[in-house]
Each structure stands twice: as C-alpha cells, then as structure tokens.
Design a protein around this nucleic acid. Structure first.
Length: 423
DNA sequence: TCTGGGGTCCTAGGACCC
DNA sequence: TCTGGGGTCCTAGGACCC
C-alpha cells in the first residue's frame, strides 16, 4: 500500500518575514498581495484576530494597526529562495518528492523504514527543516494524497498534534473524517461544497459514503476521484517530474489607473519582456500570444472595458523582440481611449520544445543568433539586476502604473547589498 | 484612495468531416 | 413534409488549486 506525506510551511510568507526579524517573533505579521491589495499570509496572532485570508487590506487596516501588526509587501525573491531550501531538505528525507506549490510538497514514503512510526517520521521532518532553514512545517500522512492533505489539516487544527497527524489506520480515519467540513477536502471548493451540502453531504465522511454513481451523475469525474481517495484508494500518483508548463501568464494590476496609450504601451511591453524571460527559463518556445486589458470591475458606475485578443505567432519563438512586436500590435488594436484601465496581461500559449517547432523552412542560423542574444541578455540581467539590459519600448525608472510595494523587506538571501548585518 | 497573480483540468457545445 | 449518425477537434467557461 502506498503512503504519502504532505509537508507545508506554516503561514509561509509570514514565517519567512520573521526569519530575519526575530524581533517580530511574538508580534502579529501579515503579508500583502501584489500592489499591497489583499492579505495573503497571516501569522497565528492575525488569524486569532479573525482577519480572513484574501481580505482587502484597506478594510482591516485599522484592526491590524491597533494590534501592532507588522505589515509586509510580497517579497517573492525571498520566498522563492527559502522555498528552494525547504525542498532540498525534503529531498534528503524521502525517496521521491513532488513540489506541489511554493510552500508544500508531497513525499512518497512507500517502503521507508521510518514508517513503522509515521508520527516520529513527521517530527524528524519538522526538526530537520527547522534546523536547516529555520521555518516551521506541518506534516500530514496518509495512504492517498487527499488523505495526507486532510491529515495535514488535522495536524494544524488541534494544537495537541504539534503539527503532525496520520490517517493511515482505517478506523481512526472514519472517526476523524466525521468532524471535517466537506469544504476542507482537497478538490472541494466553494461551489461544490454548496451543492454537496444541499444533498446533505456535510462532512468529509459523508462524501466518502456518497455512492460513486450518484457523484458521477451530478459532478465531474474529478470529484469521484476525490471521494475514492477519501476511501483510502489512491487515484493520484506522486508526480515528481511534472509535465512541461502549458501556458505562461504575466499580468499585474497597476499602481494607478492608466488613461493614456503611451503608459499602456510601456506596461504591456514590460509584461511581455517578463513573460519572455520566464518562457526561456522553461526552455520552450511559444506558438501563440494573448493580450488582455481590464478596467476596474469594482467601480460599477465607471464605464467598463475588458478586451482581449490572441494571435498565433508567425513562427514559434522565445525571442523577446518577436513577442514584443506581437504584444504591442495586439495592445494597439485593443486600446480604446476614454477608459481607466487598471490591469493588463500577457498569456503565452502553445508552448513547445524548440525541436518540435522547427521544420523544413526554419532558418537555423537566425535561430541560433536569436538564442545567443537572448541568452546573453538573460545572463547580464541575472548578474546585474533585472533591468540592466532593457528593450527600447520599456520605461526605465518610476511610473505611476507600476505596482505599489510600500512595505517590501530586503532580499536578504539573494542580493549582496541586502545581506542581513549582525551588530 | 485602497479589492493579487499564476496555474490546471473537465465539460459542453459548435464546427467540421465522412 | 421531409432534412442521419458518429467521430474529432477546438474553444469558452467554470471549477479547482496555491
């Protein structure tokens, strides 16, 4: 029988901010989304205040302030680096690891000796990550990924567990699942939960007991798999080598609305350049590109415009110049004066390997020159900072549309000038 | 004043083909 | 009044995840 663990970092972004700020150990901490818009991470103290995940910051600003909360803008350079360190440690502890998100990983523990005592194994994982990286993790263990996720939920729910729980034994499982709202099950979101509750399915145990034919009749097959996993039969294998990415999206809300095309052009160019960098990072070429613009949907009284358009690239490419040309061409067609746009974005699709996109008519020497140039640009920017080399249409320096990040912490671990100093 | 960003999978329905 | 059936591909929308 397979056995999985789900390990995740507690309140990851908030814990990451605390790592280099021991003075914040007992203070409430929140981290905001891009543009300092929403709450995306909360320390335990903030959760206790009843501040929900995803809440717009301006609505809870006063509450947070009077509790003496330390507020941070998202610092992805820091989180990505710490995430990589956590994953490296996990890879030393388990034969196979699937990095599932920036702050969590599934471990395949099948056949591991440590499993005679799963809880002890979980405690070892906690201790190792804490000593290697300095971050607190929780560990859930179960015979399927869905049950490992649920065990992780239980581990966090009840302080008695100290962040480790196991759902391997069938009879313990039946009891535990009764107390878990169906909404907490991995794969059951708000919509499905509502419909399930209308059918009288309130707990994870209820879902496990729901007849398979009934589920398939009313829901997509994905939910049938989820229920099967709750019953202890694995439908999802560990995916330690994920399939190549299918699309790349680069989009941002602006720091202030854009009313002039010249500013939109700068923004779209900026996003296209970033999307292209990320594309090259995957080693793939893009065959199609979409641009979208959006006004502010929260301002119902204002005129709304949310145009988008795609085009297939003449030849699949990872060259920033090609992607810029295509993106700006579309943006120009989408643009209509008289609107206050608050967001724009680029999507790259039909990603494919360079080999797959070459044919009889491919100009291989032009391709080689393009690859070399882009490689050089990327290398310089990696070494000297993201905008050491920019393209003509990109704006250098500040602009009103750039994202707000008022409370950004230093890039402690990835930039020499930001290295923490001990006095 | 202030409401994130980046992904995947599934399904239904239309277009098209034989 | 009559106007098949079945297959494949694509797209849009909706659901989920973090």
């Amino acid at each position: 029988m397979p056995i999985y663990a789900l390990v995740d970092v507690n309140n990851f972004y908030a814990s990451a901010e605390r790592l280099f700020r021991p003075d914040l150990a007992r203070r409430p901490v929140v981290v905001l989304s891009n543009n300092d818009g929403c709450i995306v991470a909360r320390s335990a103290e903030v959760k206790a205040l009843g501040v929900p995940m995803g809440e717009p910051y301006f609505r809870v600003r006063d509450t947070l302030q009077s509790a003496g909360t330390a507020v941070f803008s998202s610092n992805y350079a820091l989180y990505a680096d710490l995430s990589a360190r956590v994953m490296r440690t996990l890879e030393e502890l388990a034969p196979a690891v699937e990095v599932y998100s920036i702050d969590e990983a599934f471990l395949d523990l099948t056949g591991l000796d440590a499993l005679s005592d799963p809880l002890e194994f979980g405690r070892q994982v906690q201790a190792r990550v804490l000593s290697d990286v300095g971050l607190p993790v929780s560990v859930g263990i179960g015979p399927t990924k869905t049950l490992a996720k649920l065990a992780n939920y239980i581990a966090k729910q009840d302080p008695q567990h100290n962040g480790v729980a196991c759902l391997r034994e069938p009879d313990r499982r039946t009891k535990a699942l009764k107390n878990i709202p169906v909404k907490e099950v991995w794969g059951v979101g708000g919509r499905f939960a509502e419909r399930l509750e209308a059918l009288g399915v309130r707990s994870a145990a209820d879902l496990a007991l729901l007849r398979d034919s009934r589920i398939r009749q009313l829901f997509p097959v994905t939910l049938a798999r989820t229920a099967e996993e709750l019953r202890g039969r694995a439908c999802h294998d560990l995916d330690s080598e994920p399939a190549p990415q299918q699309q790349i999206i680069c989009s941002r809300t602006f720091g202030a609305p854009i009313r002039e095309y010249s500013a939109m052009r700068e923004a779209v160019a900026d996003y296209a350049v970033r999307a292209a960098e990320r594309l090259r990072g995957t080693g793939q070429y893009a065959g199609a590109l979409t641009v979208f613009l959006r006004t502010n949907p929260h301002l119902a009284a204002e005129p709304q415009h949310t145009p988008s358009a795609s085009s297939r690239l003449p030849v699949p490419t990872a060259d920033t110049r090609d992607l810029l040309t295509a993106a700006l061409h579309i943006a120009e067609q989408l643009w209509q004066p008289g609107y206050a746009y608050i967001k724009a974005g680029i999507m790259l699709a039909e990603l494919q390997s360079p080999a797959a996109s070459a044919d009889l008519f491919t100009d291989h020497s032009a391709r080689a020159r393009s690859e070399q140039l882009m490689h050089t640009v990327d290398a310089i920017n990696r070494r000297h900072g993201q905008s050491a080399v920019t393209f003509g249409v990109q704006r250098r320096g500040p602009a009103g549309w750039r994202m707000r990040r008022k409370n950004l912490s230093p890039a402690y671990t990835t930039r020499w000038s930001d290295l923490p100093v001990v006095r």
